[in-house]
Design a protein around this nucleic acid. Structure first.
Lengths: 192, 192, 192, 192
DNA sequence: CATGAATGAGCCTTCATTCAT
DNA sequence: AATGAATGAAGGCTCATTCAT
C-alpha cells in the first residue's frame, strides 16, 4: 500500500523521530526547524516526512500507544475483571506520566495521522470493554461512564504534573492519585 | 505602603482589568497589545500597571480566589467536617471550570504577584485544615495528603476540559468527577 | 479623523515610501523585509505602516494617480471635446509607461486602500465624462464603451513593455500606439 | 539530429505535456514538482525532458503557435491583402485570449527552445509580409510598423484580461478591441 | 503618567533544483 | 532512463517589550 521508504530516506526519518523523541523528553517544544537543525537535515526534509509538528509528535507517541493497546488487549484475558481494569488504568496513567508525548496526543480532539486515530479508538474500546465487564461483575459503581475514562486519566496525569517532583516521585504520585480515584470507582457496600 | 493611585490612573487600571476579564471569558489570549487596544489605552500604560501578562491574569483571577478563600474560612465553621470539606472542594472545582483565569493561576508553580501567593497559601491552609479536621473525625482515608488537594482539583478541572461540552455540561461533568473522587477519599468500612 | 502621525513616525513612513518608490523605479519587487532593510528600519515598523505590499505599492502610486485625476478634471474644462479626451488618454498612458507603480494598481480588480479605490473611481468617471462628451459631439464611434477605457490603456502600456526600449523610446512607442488606437476610436466618414 | 526517443520515454514526455496543458487550462502555475506528481512520474524525469518550467510551457504552446503560423502562410495566399492581414490578426488575438500558454511565450524577449524562436520568427515574418502587402495596396496607414504587431496583439490580449468576464465574453471583447485598433490601422480618406 | 511607534528575534512554510539510488 | 528524497535559501508574518515623545 504505502511504498516502503528508500533506505536512506528511512534512515533520515528515523533520525528525525529519534531527535524529536529526545526533544520531547527534555521538554523542548517540537519546532520543525529545530528538529531539522538537530538532525543535521534540511528543513524541507523534515517537512516532507512530517507535514506538521502534530504529525511528528503523534509518530513519536505511537510506539507507546501501541504498547498500551497491546497490554489492554491482554488485560481482556485476565480472569479477574476488576484487576484487569485496574491494571490497564495504572499502565495508562504511568505511561502518560512517564512519556511527555502522550498527554497532548491523548487530550487532542482531532488527530493528524489515521493510525493515531485507530490507536486511540482501540484504547477507548478496550477501556470500555474492561469497564463494562467489571461493572457486569458488580465491581464498579454506576457513575463514571466509558466516555469518562480518557478524560479522567488525562486529568490524573495533569494533576501529577501540577504536583511536580522527580520522575520517581511522579510515578508514585500517579499511583496514589489513581488509587484514590479507583476507590471511588469501586462498587461496595458502604457506610452500612 | 502602596501610594494610592491617582484617580485617572485607577480608572485606567480598572478598565484594563475589565477588558482582560472579558477576553478571558471569551477565550482570547491575553496579549497586552490587544488589551491596550481594546481598552483604548497605550501599550505602555498597560505595561506600567501590569508588567507581564501573568500579572494581569492573576489580577483578573484575584476576586474569584478571594471569594473561594472566604468560603473556605466559612466552611471551617461548619459542624460537619466531611460536609465542610466536600463543599469547599465542590466550590473550588466549580470555580475552575467556570472561570478560565483560575486554572493557569492555580497550576502555576510560581506567582507574579505577592497577593496571589498569599491567596493561594490561604487556600492551601484552609484546605489542609478542612482535610485534617475531616480526617480527625474519621471521615477521610489516610492516603491523599493536604499537598494533593490543589493538584487533584486542577486535575479534575483539566479532565472536564478534555471531556468538553457546553458550559452547563461542564459543570455537571465536574460534579460527577469530583463525586467519584470524593468516594475514593472517604473513609469507610469497605468490602467487609 | 485620522490622528496626525507623530513627527518621527511620519519621517519613517516617508522613508519607507521613498525607498519603495526607488525600488519600483529600479524594478525590484516590493518585499516588505527588503524595504525595511533598505530603509534601515525593523520589519515590524514597515508592517505597522503598510500591512501588505499592495498597500505600500498603492501608496507609492497615489501621487501620480492624484495628478492624473487633477489633469482629468481640468480636461473637462477644455472646449474641444475630442482634444480633451485625447489629452487625458495620452497623459494616462504616459504615466503608466513612465511609472511602474501604476500598471499593477490600475489593472488590479480589488484595491487595498480606500483612497486608491476613490482615485480609480474618479479616473473612471472622468474618463466616462470625457468619452461621453466627445461622443455627444459626434467625435467618437459607438464601439468602445467607457468600461473599455481602463483596459485599453492598460493594454497599450503592456504593449509598450513588450516592445521594450529605453525610457525615451517607450514614451515614443506609447504615443504611436495610442495614436493608432485613437484613429480607430475617432468617428469619421470612412471609405466614402 | 535528435535521437528518436525510446518508446517509454516518448510516452512519458507526452504525458508530461498533456498534464501541463491541463494545468495551463485550469490556471494552475506550472511547477515541475506538481507536474511530476500529476503525471505519476518522478521530478527528475520531468527535469530530464524539460530543463525549466519555461521549456515546458513553450512546448505546451507549440502546437498552437504552429497552427497560427500555418494559418498565416495560408493568409498570404488570400487575394485581398487587407482581409488577409485582418484575418491573421484576429486569429492571433483569439488564440492568445483562448490559450493561456501563449501570452507569456509571445511576450517573452528570450526563448528557451530554438523551435519556439523559429516559430515566433515565422509569425513575425508572416505578419510583416501581410502588413507590407496591405500597405503596398494602400490599405494601411504608415504608422505602426511590422515590429509593432506582436506588442500590439499582446497588448490587446492583456486588455482583455484586465476587462475580465467569462470565456465567451473574453472572445467578444477581444474582437471589439481588435476591431477598433484595425480601424486606426486602416488607411482612409479621413475627415475629408 | 501616558502614549504608541519601533524593534527584531523567532517561527513558519514553499519550491526550484540537485543527485544518490 | 527514471526516481523521488534532500536541500536550504528565500520569503512571509507575529508579538513581547522598550523607549523617545
Amino acid at each position: 500500500m504505502t511504498t516502503p521508504l528508500r533506505k536512506d530516506a528511512a534512515r533520515n526519518r528515523d533520525r528525525i523521530v529519534a531527535v524529536a523523541r529526545a526533544m520531547v523528553d527534555e521538554g523542548t517544544p517540537l519546532q520543525l526547524n529545530d528538529v531539522a537543525g538537530r538532525a543535521g537535515l534540511g528543513v524541507g526534509t523534515v517537512y516532507r516526512h512530517f507535514a506538521t509538528p502534530e504529525a511528528l509528535l503523534e509518530t513519536v507517541a505511537t510506539p507507546c500507544l501501541e504498547a498500551l493497546a497491546a497490554q489492554g488487549r491482554e488485560a481482556t484475558a485476565d480472569t479477574d475483571p476488576w484487576r484487569a481494569l485496574e491494571g490497564f488504568l495504572f499502565r495508562t496513567v504511568e505511561a502518560q506520566v512517564t512519556d511527555a508525548s502522550l498527554a497532548p496526543v491523548a487530550a487532542a480532539a482531532d488527530d493528524t495521522l489515521p493510525h493515531t486515530t485507530e490507536l486511540k479508538e482501540t484504547l477507548r474500546s478496550v477501556g470500555t470493554a474492561l469497564l463494562d465487564r467489571a461493572r457486569a461483575a458488580g465491581a464498579v459503581r454506576h457513575e463514571p461512564t466509558a466516555a469518562d475514562l480518557v478524560p479522567l486519566m488525562c486529568g490524573i496525569a495533569y494533576a501529577v504534573n501540577v504536583h511536580g517532583g522527580t520522575p520517581a516521585d511522579r510515578i508514585d504520585t500517579a499511583h496514589r492519585y489513581l488509587t484514590t480515584l479507583l476507590e471511588g470507582l469501586r462498587a461496595a457496600p458502604r457506610h452500612a
